[in-house]
Structure formats: structure tokens, C-alpha cells
Amino acid sequence: MFTGIVEEVGTVVLREDQPDSAVLRIRAATVLEDVTLGDSIAVNGVCLTVTAVDGDVWSTDVMAETLSRSSLGAAVAGRPVNLERAVTPTPASAAT
């Protein structure tokens, strides 16, 4: 789940186009503080999965359909992107 509140503005470092997808490498700081592979990070409001982390740069795969239907289709090296980590759900405390 996401709140819609941008935590930081990252920068696209690389876009590697594939036949039916693309790999984005994004430079960030705050959203990588406690990230692990498989975590979700919203990029310009699109939920994406962390596939690799190398220092302050993380990678994600984006399918062609997502590229064609979102602002990520215009993501190129040097372009800023809004980043937000997923919220960790916590159970409500039981009424006593």
C-alpha cells in the first residue's frame, strides 16, 4: 500500500529497452535505506519491484504495457522521478 506522499525525487540513470519490457536503473537515497530485493517502490505512482541494488542505484523491470500507459514511457537517463516506499501494514491494537 502507498500513501501517495513522495519521499524523494530520484534520477533515472539508465533505461535498457527489451523486446517487451525495459530495465530502469534509478539513483536514490531515502527509499533505499532499508530496501531488500522484492520490495515495492512507487515510481511516478507506478508500483515497481526492486530487482537489484548497487550502492545508491536500484533496478526494476517495467513491462511494455506499463510503459505505454504511464509516465514511465518517457523515462530516460537524467529524468527525475518521484519515489515512495510501500507502507508496512500494522494491525490495529485490540480494544480492551
Rank of each mutant, 00 (worst) to 15 (best):
M1C: 03
F2T: 03
T3S: 15
G4I: 02
G4L: 07
I5A: 09
I5H: 07
I5R: 02
V6H: 06
V6I: 15
E7Q: 15
E8W: 08
V9S: 14
V9R: 14
T11K: 14
T11A: 12
T11V: 12
T11E: 15
V12L: 06
V13A: 10
V13T: 10
L14F: 00
L14V: 11
L14Q: 14
L14N: 12
R15A: 13
R15L: 04
R15E: 11
E16T: 08
E16H: 13
D17P: 13
Q18Y: 10
Q18D: 06
P19Q: 08
P19K: 09
D20W: 09
D20H: 14
S21W: 11
S21A: 15
A22T: 11
A22V: 04
A22Q: 04
A22P: 12
L24P: 07
I26R: 08
I26H: 06
R27Q: 14
A29M: 03
T30K: 13
T30W: 01
V31T: 07
V31K: 07
L32E: 04
E33C: 00
D34S: 05
D34N: 03
D34K: 01
D34G: 01
D34L: 00
D34Y: 00
V35M: 02
T36E: 02
L37D: 07
G38F: 03
G38Q: 07
D39C: 08
D39F: 05
S40M: 11
I41C: 05
G45S: 08
V46Q: 04
C47T: 07
C47Q: 02
L48W: 09
L48K: 01
T49Q: 11
T49W: 05
T49G: 08
A52Q: 13
V53H: 07
D54T: 12
G55V: 05
G55T: 03
G55R: 02
W58I: 02
S59G: 03
T60R: 06
T60D: 09
D61Y: 13
D61L: 13
D61E: 15
V62N: 10
M63S: 06
M63N: 08
M63G: 03
M63Q: 11
A64K: 13
A64P: 03
A64R: 14
A64C: 01
A64D: 14
T66D: 13
L67E: 12
S71V: 04
S71Y: 00
S71W: 01
L72S: 06
L72V: 10
G73A: 08
G73Y: 08
A75Y: 05
V76S: 05
V76G: 01
A77V: 03
G78H: 08
R79C: 05
P80M: 07
P80K: 06
V81Q: 07
N82R: 09
L83W: 12
E84D: 07
E84W: 12
E84V: 02
R85A: 01
R85H: 08
A86M: 07
V87C: 09
V87E: 12
V87N: 01
T88L: 13
T88D: 03
P89D: 06
T90N: 13
T90G: 14
T90M: 07
T90W: 10
P91W: 12
P91D: 14
P91R: 13
A92Q: 11
A92C: 01
A92G: 10
A92T: 10
S93K: 05
S93N: 03
A95P: 01
A95I: 11
T96P: 15
T96A: 12
